[in-house]
Simulated scan of single mutants.
Amino acid sequence: MHALILAGGLSHERDVSIRSGRRVMEALRTTVDKVTMVDVDTELIPTLRHGDIDVVWPLVHGATGEDGSLQALLELVGVPFVGTASPSARVAWNKAVSKAVMARSGISTPDHVTLPQSLFREVGAEQVLDTVVARFGLPVVVKPVRGGSALGVSIVHDRGDLARAMVHCFAYGDTALVEKHIPGTEVAMSVLGTGDDARVLPAVETVTDGAYDYDARYNPGRVEYFAPARLTESQAAEAATTALAVHRSMDLRDLSRIDLILDETGVAQVIDINITPGMTETSLFPQAAEAAGLDLGRVYREVVDTAAARGATR
């Protein structure tokens, strides 16, 4: 077995991707005959065609790695790879589209609106923002409609801060998703497997000093993690059922992480879908696996074996 890890790329999340790749490579070295890691560059296609590779694990975060583009390239070359196929990746990557899919499946997600940057110029920024506040109240969450690692995300409690949050969001994309802030317990649900064989790992609860933003996610000290999460039996069941429903309804494969908030009534509200979960030393998927008593090397070997056996299919 020769597993090739793809990490790096040119997105804002390059450093996180490399850290994830290195951690997975270290874990796989205990169970796989050969594991190598390469960047996404002009040598990628020749490497894929002539590198005697059994399976590829794309760990590129951000647009190219998670919007279906890299998956489509791997399908085009014809190499087996870990993770979701390109059509479903495109749907999961776009938060507005994925919310529509979840709504049709009866999965709860915070009330929201999608606003392109061009609309603010055409209609008038202050009038748009006043309408947002009138509709949702405060606080609201502002995030890029496409993106990961909480880049460009703000929780806005004061009307005076809303314009600044929109500018910050538009630095990472030309369309913003504004959603009603849901108070409750924030948990990450990691899912292993595909379809009927998918299973949920223990919930990981995050308690943050401020917003659970990029700095909090990848720099130790601002977040307290509870793995497993401090949930009642009914809350844990609700979270697990919701995560599985998302994973299956979106046709996700092999592994995913579904971030959700258990609101004050106990309903799980989905706030994000990750088809390429982070695998760094502070990431939530490895914490969930360890909370389940699983050996990461064995878990990752199971993932690459499944992908290799599936072959180069969509």
Rank of each mutant, 00 (worst) to 15 (best):
V60H: 02
W93M: 15
G83R: 03
V32D: 01
L115A: 04
R49W: 04
R49N: 03
V38F: 03
V97N: 02
G62L: 00
A92M: 10
V113M: 13
V56I: 15
A96V: 12
V97Q: 09
V77Y: 07
P116L: 05
L70Q: 00
P116M: 05
A85T: 07
L74N: 00
G106I: 14
E75F: 01
P87M: 14
S20L: 11
S88F: 09
P58H: 08
M25L: 14
A63P: 06
A89D: 09
T42E: 13
D54V: 09
P80S: 10
R49Q: 08
V24F: 04
P110C: 07
E75R: 06
T109C: 07
L74E: 00
V77G: 05
A27D: 08
S108M: 07
T109P: 02
M25Y: 01
L59D: 01
V24G: 03
D67V: 08
V113R: 12
V91G: 01
L44A: 10
V40S: 10
R19H: 11
P87Y: 12
L28S: 07
T42D: 15
P110E: 09
E13Y: 04
G65S: 09
G21K: 08
S17G: 05
D54H: 09
A63L: 07
L48Q: 09
E75Q: 10
R49E: 13
M102I: 07
P116C: 06
V113N: 01
T47D: 01
E13S: 07
R90H: 11
L59G: 01
R49F: 00
L59P: 00
G83C: 09
P87G: 11
V38G: 03
G106Q: 09
R104N: 10
V56T: 11
V101L: 14
V91M: 10
S105I: 00
L73Q: 03
L73R: 00
A72M: 07
S11P: 10
V55M: 11
R29F: 00
F81P: 05
I107W: 09
V82L: 14
S20N: 07
D67N: 15
H50R: 11
K99L: 02
R14D: 12
L44D: 08
H12M: 05
